[in-house]
Computed example of a mutant assay.
Amino acid sequence: MSAETNLPTDPEAKVTDATVDVNGESEEFTLAPDGEPFDLSPENPADAETAADTPVDLQATVSALTQDIEALKAQLEDRTNQYMRIAADFENFRKRTQKEKEEQEQQIKCTTLKELLPVVDNFERARSQIKPQTDAEMNIHKSYQSVL
């Protein structure tokens, strides 16, 4: 059995492609960068067996992923509903506190006016009773009018 190759004779040369002539038949192959031929067969014989089982595994994986997607969609919908309820509760709280603030402000104004009414009434009675005739009386009249 004679084999001829077209490999370079220089030991430093890197060979990536080679042609081997064995018994008149020429075979061409590619060498790895380290000079070894590429092995295109599966490294692990078990890989060849799992390749045959791949459609079943893929179907199981797809069904598992589909279930995960459905679970995540349900969780997303639940979280969205929770968010909507919380947002509505917060909006109701904001409106309620604004209304309470306005009611409190109105109540304070009413209380203040109720306390001032007797004082205003007294000034009104004083104005109707006093008829200023002298300059001193006129000064007093102007004083309480300005306070009124």
Rank of each mutant, 00 (worst) to 15 (best):
F38C: 03
F38T: 02
F38I: 03
D39M: 12
D39G: 09
L40P: 00
S41L: 06
S41Q: 13
P42M: 09
P42N: 12
P42G: 12
P42H: 02
P42D: 15
N44E: 03
A46M: 10
A46T: 04
A46V: 02
D47E: 08
A48Y: 09
A48G: 08
E49W: 06
E49M: 09
E49H: 09
T50W: 01
A51W: 03
A52W: 03
A52M: 02
A52E: 14
D53S: 01
D53C: 00
T54M: 07
T54P: 02
P55H: 04
P55A: 11
V56R: 01
D57V: 00
D57Y: 02
L58K: 08
Q59M: 07
Q59P: 02
A60D: 14
A60M: 07
T61C: 02
T61Q: 05
T61M: 07
V62N: 12
V62M: 07
S63D: 15
S63G: 00
S63L: 07
A64H: 08
A64V: 07
L65T: 13
L65H: 08
L65Y: 04
T66F: 01
T66D: 14
T66Y: 02
Q67L: 08
Q67M: 05
D68I: 02
D68R: 12
I69F: 09
E70W: 07
E70M: 11
E70T: 15
A71K: 13
A71N: 14
A71V: 10
Q75M: 14
Q75G: 07
Q75A: 15
Q75C: 11
L76V: 00
L76F: 11
E77D: 15
